[in-house]
Design a protein around this nucleic acid. Structure first.
Lengths: 234, 234
DNA sequence: TCTCCTCGAATTGCATACAAAATGGCGAGA
DNA sequence: TCTCGCCATTTTGTATGCAATTCGAGGAGA
């Protein structure tokens, strides 16, 4: 009974999905980690059937890579995919900004302001600050009431943390909190173009800070591919 | 053996997914149709497990609605969702156009021209012409080499046919073929802004043509039999 | 006749069983 | 010692079985 209420909505498969997603976004499961169906099911107290369903969902969201007959692992997007992803994100978030500009209700403004304060407060701790930064963008998307837009922004933001985990510089705050505040100000003032430009700059600065890969754990094949081409191999 | 090759790539679950998707996009299964797991599995010669997986995928793509304990049905988006969807689509397809403008290779131009010719030829038959019109847009997206962009445009185009099935006027060609040709011309000429404007107008004119619903529920097994053969299932 | 209740058939939710494929280690041969 | 190939183990792919839920038909009572 108590159990039934505690799954947070939907079936237990959704619960598994949420658990894994959260773990991935918190980087408790880092890109490339294997995700064996039975270990997960065993640990979570569900059968492989449900784990499988969750993994399929995650793979559709681009958080998990599902290699036939070889199991699932946390997705390891390439740097180029990362750049493209931020391009796509920019296109969608521009729509978010255009939709919201000058139309925020007092209540929405309150929510956003509170969120920015929370970001400010958590600035020191790495993991929570990354998550909060992402949530600011999904919050904005949410306010458009455009379901497809919301879904895609959510997905892209989620995948962005994977990208940053792989290629982001360790010591730069990914989203400057002050930029969020500025953006909010422009939105309230209804300065659509300036807000859009700010968002563009905001995302652009993230991609620009995504240059060198975090060392060590990169895939051998990926590293070699550049050299292979130069030598005319494979 | 022959069977294994004929599933088109991926496992049998993917095959089921393709069958259903195709059937939905062809409007052989119209919005609101029930999708019982065992009828489908029985007809396609697979177990409910695989059908379930396919349905989960389709629900993530927004093509089917998955109501807990009450089964799946082909999605029936509201008119407002439809409008929002086209808004989102516009944002993404603008990015497509901007990416491609002035950068099409000779080969790509050939492919697109050929496609437009095919559209022209199929103009009379309703179902194929709808599919071809959508494929023009997914073809363009494909050429950007931006995987997330490709995925989202594909999804959005697919869902657009649902919208048109529900609210589109029966006798208007959804995408004027001539507009596709014009767009291609602008892209070749590298006139980015004009191309973007044309795309905007193109999609806008579709949303403006939003009206009456259609009807007709047919037997699932009957409808699926044609598609099953194409995928080498049962 | 209308309403509400109950029961049975149909359908989904989930676990488990078994088959097929991959992975890793060990030993034979060079 | 190194390499190759074979077998045991592990993990995925798929079907099936059982419990839980929903839906509808029919019947009792007002």
């Amino acid at each position: 009974m108590a159990n039934k209420e505690s799954d947070g909505g939907g079936g237990r498969a959704q619960a598994v999905h949420r658990v894994l997603k959260r773990a991935i976004l918190d980087q408790a499961l880092s890109p490339g980690s294997k995700l064996p169906e039975d270990s997960i099911g065993e640990r979570l107290g569900v059968s492989r059937t449900l784990v499988r369903e969750a993994l399929v969902r995650l793979s559709q969201e681009g958080l998990v890579e599902l290699r036939p007959n070889k199991g699932a692992m946390v997705a390891r997007p390439t740097l180029e995919e990362g750049r493209n992803l931020f391009l796509t994100r920019m296109a969608l978030e521009r729509l978010v900004v255009e939709t919201l500009s000058g139309k925020l209700t007092r209540e929405q403004i309150g929510v956003l302001s509170a969120h920015i304060s929370a970001e400010e407060a958590a600035k020191k701790e790495r993991a929570p600050s990354i998550r909060l930064a992402g949530e600011f963008h999904t919050l904005l998307a949410q306010m458009t009431n455009n379901t497809s837009l919301i879904r895609y922004v959510n997905e892209l933001v989620a995948r962005s943390s994977l990208i940053l985990a792989l290629y982001g510089r360790p010591h730069s705050s990914e989203c400057a909190v002050s930029e969020h505040q500025e953006l909010l100000d422009k939105l309230i003032a209804g300065k659509t173009d300036e807000a859009a430009a700010l968002m563009a700059h905001h995302l652009d600065s993230v991609t620009t800070r995504a240059l060198l890969p975090a060392d060590g754990d990169r895939n051998i094949k990926e590293v070699l591919s550049a050299y292979a081409v130069a030598e005319g191999l494979a």
